[in-house]
């Protein structure tokens, strides 16, 4: 059976203007990701891993080229439409967790759902269930600044998954964590995403993750180089 394509990127270019000079991040980058795949992006700091994730999620528009996610042409969408797209299709896990400091753990997760529809008791139960699954049942009413890094990242994973998006983007999710906590978080993320059949693209420095990925790419010299393919 031919798997459906989740992400199609072709001839993608991204550059920034810095002090009047054009700073090229990618040039003619192409990539095809099938639904349910686990992709790892490797590369040095500043190579453009985060930028690629931002482009796929619609946080940043490309300078040139095409991005198609679940048959939606992102380049043809307005800023408003890209936001709505992100709301439904993307779950984002950041290196710095990026939780809202003024909301409790449960509220941080519920917010992602409320942006899609009005909250019901069923949604609340769903949130509690997911957070319990992530071993955060005791922290439902705690504020993020009272949690450890690992706990915060688990909340961020819950927020990324609660609205059942097709694609999970993780930008160095273990970058701020110690080795053991990092392993736990990775295992959790892989487990949840694999089980739910979601597409996962993870930018990381960790070589350890590469063993679990379906495909591994390196961003080098403004281009994407394929490293391994387990498919």
């Amino acid at each position: 059976m031919i798997k459906k394509s989740a992400i199609e990127i072709s001839q993608l270019c991204k550059y920034y203007l810095e002090s009047g000079r054009q700073h090229v991040i990618f040039k003619d980058l192409s990539l095809s990701v099938t639904a349910g795949e686990f992709i790892v992006l490797l590369g040095r700091s500043g190579s453009g891993k985060s930028t690629l994730l931002n482009l796929i999620s619609g946080l940043d528009p490309p300078s040139k080229g095409h991005i198609e996610v679940n048959d939606i042409h992102l380049c043809e969408l307005t800023e408003q439409q890209r936001t709505i797209f992100r709301r439904h299709h993307i779950g984002f896990v950041f290196q710095a967790y990026n939780l809202i400091p003024t909301l409790t753990v449960a509220e941080n997760v519920l917010l992602a759902l409320e942006l899609i529809h009005a909250i019901s008791d069923y949604d609340r139960d769903q949130v509690v269930s997911l957070l319990t699954q992530l071993d955060l049942a005791d922290c439902l009413d705690a504020y993020p600044d009272r949690l450890s890094g690992g706990e915060q990242q688990r909340v961020a994973i819950a927020r990324a998954l609660i609205h059942n998006p097709d694609i999970i983007l993780a930008d160095e999710p273990t970058g701020n964590l110690d080795i053991d906590t990092g392993k736990q978080v990775l295992a959790l993320l892989e487990n949840l995403v694999r089980k739910a059949g979601k597409t996962l693209i993870m930018a990381t420095h960790s070589e350890e993750v590469t063993g679990k990925a379906d495909r591994v790419f390196v961003i080098k010299n403004k281009a994407l180089t394929w490293v391994t393919d387990k498919r």
């Binding site: 946080l59 408003q80 936001t83 992100r86 990026n98 899609i116 927020r159």
Partner: peptide, 14 residues
């Protein structure tokens, strides 16, 4: 940055 997070998880500028 905090407002950026809200935008990232799907809050529109409106």
């Amino acid at each position: 940055r905090q407002l950026g997070i809200l935008r990232a998880i799907g809050m529109t500028s409106g």
